[in-house]
């Protein structure tokens, strides 16, 4: 607002409502991508459509899922620390979450590089990379938010009273983790 007396509680609840609405919109975006995936897959003679073409192995993406779920846990502890005003706790937990996210991205990058097929590999390559790529971009954005939390926490700007950014980041991150698990189940397992 920038005007007169600002009510921090109101600002916080406005921000969190906005994040929830944003997540609703993001859900629809992923919904469109998943819809495309399921429609194309259902019309395909087999999946992957090309005979002899194997889906990527489960090991690395499985590890990635473990990382995502674990990072949601550490994110939960970040929020708890923030609520209770435990400043060192915030820094420890957000740092750990950030680290897990970075490893996720590195593994995903490695997987992309070694898959042996590209975006232009028919409908399988298209759906695979666009869905995982969109998700990866969301993870990157989440890491950006976490970096802001780290920076502000280091400057002592996150406290029991002022931690909207932590809560907002956590909402977003839970969404990204849930989308990731759903994606994993759809693309690799189902």
């Amino acid at each position: 607002m920038g005007f007169g007396e600002e009510d921090p509680d109101a600002a916080r609840s406005n921000m969190l409502l906005a994040v929830k609405l944003g997540i609703l919109s993001e859900t629809m975006l992923f919904g469109a991508l998943f819809a495309a995936y399921f429609v194309i897959r259902s019309e395909s003679p087999g999946w992957p459509p090309v005979a002899g073409f194997e889906r990527p192995a489960l090991l690395l993406p499985g590890l990635d899922m473990v990382l995502l779920v674990a990072s949601s846990g550490t994110m939960l502890w970040t929020v708890r620390s923030a609520r209770s005003g435990d400043r060192s706790g915030i820094r420890r937990w957000i740092g750990l979450t950030l680290l897990l996210g970075v490893i996720f991205i590195i593994i995903q990058g490695f997987e992309f590089a070694t898959n042996g097929f590209g975006l232009d590999a028919g409908t399988f390559g298209s759906t695979f990379y666009v869905l995982t790529g969109f998700h990866g971009a969301h993870v990157l954005a989440g890491l950006g938010l976490m970096a802001i939390v780290v920076r502000r926490a280091n400057r002592g700007l996150v406290s029991a009273e002022h931690h909207t950014i932590v809560e907002a980041t956590s909402y977003y991150w839970y969404f990204v983790a849930a989308a990731g698990v759903f994606l994993f189940a759809t693309l690799y397992v189902l």
Binding site: A36, E43, L119, G122, T123, G125, S126, T127, V130
Partner: peptide
């Protein structure tokens, strides 16, 4: 980027 979501000739719809 050469994807084939809506390219019928390559399995798209």
């Amino acid at each position: 980027l050469g994807t084939s979501f809506f390219r019928a000739s390559r399995g798209g719809d």
